[in-house]
Design a protein around this nucleic acid. Structure first.
Lengths: 196, 196
DNA sequence: TTGACAAGTGACCTATCGTTCACTATACTA
DNA sequence: TAGTATAGTGAACGATAGGTCACTTGTCAA
C-alpha cells in the first residue's frame, strides 16, 4: 500500500476539489474517506498545496500525452456523416469519463485563483480543441468536403458550441441526453452549412 | 450610513467571492476592507450565508429586470454590418462592466456547490443569450437578411463561441483586445456564411 | 532473529473560522 | 432634555482548519 495510498489520496482529492473547491475541502474528511487519519496524509504529501500541485502536474502530463503530439490527432473523415459520428463519439467520451469531468470541474472552479489552473482552463476549453480540429477541417477542405474557409475559424466555430454543451452536462447531468442530441444536431447543421 | 453599509458589504462580498470563492472568503478581511470590525457585519447580515443568498437574489432580480421581458430585446438590425456592430457593442459592454464580470466569475466558481448558482449559470452562459438572440435571428430571416434556418439553432451557434471568448476575457484580461477582434471576425464570418 | 525503514496513529499545536454579546457612540424623536 | 433605536466595538466563544511529533505497527532484507 505504498504508492497505492498516494494515488488513492490524489483520486479522492480530485473528487473533493472538483465538488467543493480547494478551499472548501478539508483533509480530515479527505483522509477519513480513505479509512485513514489526517496525520497519515503527511507521510505522502507535505501539505495540502502539494496535493493540489501534484494534481495539476498529472493533468498537464495527461493532456500533453493525449493531445500534445500530432500522432494523436483524429483522422480526417471521408464524409460529413463520418465527421458527425466522430464528433458524437468524442463528445460522449468526454461527457461520461469521470476523471475528465472532475478535471473540468476543478479547472472551472479554480481558474481565477490559480495561475496554472487558468492556463489549463484556456487550453482545455478553448485553444486545445481548436488546435485539434483545425487540421481536421483543413483536411476536409482539401478533400473537397467543405468550402474553402479559414480552418482555424471553422474549428473555433465548431468546437465552442459543443464545449458549451459539455459544460452544461457537467453542471446539470440530467440534461446529458438532451445535450448529446443538441451536439449531434448542431454538428450536422454546421457541416451542412459549410459543405461544398 | 445605514443602508449604505449594507450595500457596501454586498459590493465587497461580490468582489471577494468572485476572486476567492465563497469558502475562500473570510469576513474579517471583508469587513476590514470597509474599515469595519468583523462583528459589525452582523448588524446587517445574520450570517455569511445570508450575504451569499442576498447576492443571488440581487443577481436574479437584475437579470430578470434587464433580460426578462420582451421589451428589452435588442432590435432586429437592418443589415449584417449593423448586426456586427450591435454584437461588438454588447460584447464590449459585458466584457468591461465590472459588476457583470464579477457576477460571471462568481457563478462560474460556485456553480457546482450551489443549486441557485447552477441555474443562474445555465441562464447567463447558455439559454439566456439564446432566448435573446432567437427572435433577432428570426427577424433577420423575415427581413431577408439571412437564409431561412432554425432561428434557435442560429442563436446557439452564434452566441456560444462569443460566450467562450467572453469567458476567456474573464480568465485572462490581457487578452481582451485579441478576443474582441476575434468576436468581431467570427460575427462577420458567421453572418456572411448564413446570408441570403 | 534482528534491524531498518516506510506507513499509520493519536494527542496536541497554533491559527483562524463564523458567531455572540455586553457595551459605547451617535442621531433622531417625543 | 430624556429616551430610544441604530451602528459600531472589542473581547471572547466553540469549532475547525492545516500541520507536527513521538510513537506503534507491519514488512522485508541481512
Amino acid at each position: 500500500m505504498a504508492k497505492d495510498t498516494k494515488q488513492r489520496i490524489l483520486a479522492v482529492a480530485l473528487e473533493m476539489f472538483s465538488q467543493k473547491g480547494y478551499a472548501g475541502t478539508n483533509i480530515r474528511e479527505l483522509t477519513a474517506s480513505l479509512g485513514l487519519v489526517k496525520s497519515s496524509l503527511y507521510r505522502h504529501f507535505c501539505s495540502k498545496e502539494e496535493i493540489w500541485n501534484t494534481l495539476l502536474d498529472e493533468m498537464t502530463a495527461y493532456y500533453d500525452a493525449h493531445f500534445g503530439s500530432a500522432e494523436h490527432l483524429p483522422p480526417v473523415p471521408d464524409s460529413l456523416e463520418e465527421m458527425v459520428t466522430m464528433t458524437r463519439r468524442m463528445a460522449d467520451f468526454t461527457i461520461h469519463d469521470k476523471n475528465i469531468v472532475m478535471t473540468r470541474k476543478l479547472l472551472v472552479t479554480e481558474q481565477f485563483r490559480d495561475a496554472r489552473a487558468q492556463q489549463l482552463a484556456t487550453k482545455h476549453f478553448l485553444t486545445g480543441l481548436q488546435d485539434i480540429f483545425t487540421p481536421v477541417f483543413a483536411g476536409m477542405v482539401e478533400k473537397g468536403l467543405l468550402r474553402r474557409e479559414d480552418p482555424a475559424m471553422l474549428a473555433f466555430a465548431y468546437t465552442a458550441p459543443i464545449t458549451a454543451l459539455i459544460h452544461l452536462c457537467d453542471r446539470e447531468p440530467e440534461k446529458i441526453p438532451e445535450a448529446a442530441a443538441q451536439i449531434e444536431a448542431f454538428s450536422r447543421q454546421f457541416l451542412n452549412n459549410h459543405k461544398k
